[in-house]
């Protein structure tokens, strides 16, 4: 028997690591990976609450989060490829103009 709060703390730690990476990292692909890390932390909280309250809907929501993450990864990586094609850099500090 593990207290529910332990699962929530683990999920919060993962989410915080994702936020920290999102703010500290300068490589656009790594920033994108940090977003995935945040989504994973949230998924753990969903599943822990689903198990605690005996409701399967929490697991169905995790499924939806994963589908949205997959769609986001496909579109986001396509955007990264087109940014790299026009600017020849992956550093977000150099991608600060809307205009070329």
């Amino acid at each position: 028997m593990v207290p529910l709060s332990y699962y929530l703390v683990l999920s919060a730690v993962l989410f915080a690591c994702g936020v920290a990476g999102f703010l500290m990292k300068r490589n656009i692909i790594t920033i994108f990976m940090c977003i995935e890390l945040m989504l994973n932390g949230v998924n753990l909280a969903f599943v822990a609450f689903a198990a605690h309250w005996h409701r399967l809907s929490g697991q169905v929501f995790v499924f939806f989060v994963m589908v949205v993450a997959a769609a986001e990864a496909a579109v986001g990586l396509a955007i990264i490829i087109s940014v790299f094609r026009t600017r020849e850099t992956l550093n977000v500090d150099r991608v600060n103009l809307l205009k070329l």
Partner: peptide, 22 residues
């Protein structure tokens, strides 16, 4: 966050292994 979660333990319960067969 960890202090608040462990102190309050929102749903004040434990989760057993395989509590809910998904």
């Amino acid at each position: 966050v960890a202090w608040v979660l462990i102190r309050q333990n929102p749903a004040s319960g434990t989760v057993a292994a395989g509590a809910l067969p998904g």
